[in-house]
Design a protein around this nucleic acid. Structure first.
Lengths: 256, 256
DNA sequence: TCAAAAGTGTTATAAATACACCCATGC
DNA sequence: GCATGGGTGTATTTATAACACTTTTGA
């Protein structure tokens, strides 16, 4: 019945027993590929569905640590600043019968029953630069990949709603913090940064005004000039990391 | 050993079994008595400690509904808009040995063990007007009372931290929403409202500017003039409820 | 030399802030 | 009439937004 060996199943049962029941964590990670805002999604082995990366919390582990661990296990991303955007737990928040049916091809009844209980999930989000190393997923997942946030309507459970909620939080944060800079690669230009803003906000912003406000923060350091651009080459900047971190703790108005 | 009858204990065990384990909800409710910002705290029967009101989530109940139910059971407050301010779950988030000791005077070992596991808690907050009817607590609590937020340092667990976090959220909300109006009684004056702002923000604000900004929102309706004041009597207003609710959904800048 | 994209500056408007002044009341 | 607190207006500064002009590059 199961595609896994009895040893593996025993291991899974032990793992599940070490975790807080009925409570999960999901991580919505945003990146910007220069054109679109994207999030990673994973496909579990037992069903033909796609999920936001997520998992369970060990009994001897804080929830923030759990979020970091889970994200690393499923995508190999690490060293991100993960922040909560909300906790979700309507009474009927569980997998559909259809998915439970699929899953029973891979796992025995007791495991299915455990993981398809009603779950409350804590949502975390973060943002990463473009030049993130390739995603690699862990055991029990077939694949992990980036998809545009606009193409997340068909995720399992309420995961598409999690993406929307995380995005709302991100927009709100943009108003008071120069957060977006975390999105950018080591060096970047202001027009690139502007495209990112526009992708998140969903509307165009004025070029001149954008420049002025970003430069006023004084958290960019000029490092050179781009080449081979077909038009006037933009100035290349890097982050003044110290000033950037300071600016995250105070709040500065940076809204658009 | 226990001060409760065997029937009561059985009832408690049944209740606990109907709930999600290791997950709780706590509600931080703010009110303003004209001078200080206050929150209700409760004292459980089994220990000489004070808590933020809180409890567990039934298996067939959404977390938002649970928050409302729990708050009503422990304080009889109802019909408030409860919003999440965060979820808290460090690895060592559990009662101290000392409190477990106290508790064992009231409850048998199995119940103590269940409720003093490591818990993750979802924090909800809300604000109420001054003329709230008296608080009344439920079974398993000795007392409920309002205390100034500045006097919440000695609450059990991390509850004093929950108050700080809820207050941070409240401050942030003030920047974009005229939330504070929920705090006020049916009718009130602008100087009263200003005191509230100052209490939450922790600093004085300019009288003239405050007036202008509040009136610009057009959500106040003049209903008369105060009397017997020892100085010029302030104008008494009430809320234009419809406009107020509208203003909460859109965001208007109202920051100080 | 022209289009395209980047960089820069100017101006108009609106918002935030700091005050100054007047008003109504009780003593 | 005067101290007290409330109501109102105004001037200054600062932020936001709209837009025009210049610069640099590749074709």
């Amino acid at each position: 019945m199961s595609q896994f060996s009895e040893e593996t199943l025993t291991l899974i049962r032990q793992e599940l027993k070490k975790c807080i029941p009925q409570l999960s964590i999901n991580c919505v990670i945003f990146r910007f590929d220069g054109e679109h805002l994207q999030v990673p999604i994973v496909q579990p082995v037992q069903a033909d569905i796609w999920n936001i990366p997520g998992g369970y919390i060990y009994q001897d582990e804080g929830i923030n640590e759990a979020a970091k661990r889970i994200l690393f296990e499923q995508t190999e991303m690490e060293n991100l600043l993960l922040s909560q955007f909300g906790t979700f737990g309507s009474a009927k928040r569980e997998f559909s019968e259809e998915i439970k049916g699929y899953s029973s091809l891979s796992f025995p009844e007791d495991i299915i029953k455990h993981v398809s209980q009603r779950f409350v999930t804590i949502g975390y989000y973060s943002i990463v630069g473009q030049k993130q190393k390739d995603l690699k997923t862990g055991p029990f997942f077939r694949e992990v990949k980036w998809v545009n946030v606009k193409e997340t309507k068909s995720l399992a459970l309420d995961h598409s709603n999690l993406v929307s909620e995380a995005l709302l939080m991100l927009k709100a944060e943009l108003q008071s913090k120069p957060l977006l800079l975390s999105f950018m690669p080591q060096t970047f230009t202001i027009p690139e940064l502007q495209k990112l803003y526009e992708a998140i906000l969903g509307r165009p912003v004025d070029r001149g005004n954008f420049r002025q406000r970003i430069l006023k923060t004084k958290i960019l350091i000029k490092v050179g000039t781009a080449t081979k651009t077909g038009s006037r080459p933009p100035i290349v900047y890097k982050l003044d990391t110290k000033k950037y971190l300071d600016s995250l703790t105070q709040d500065m108005k940076l809204g658009f």
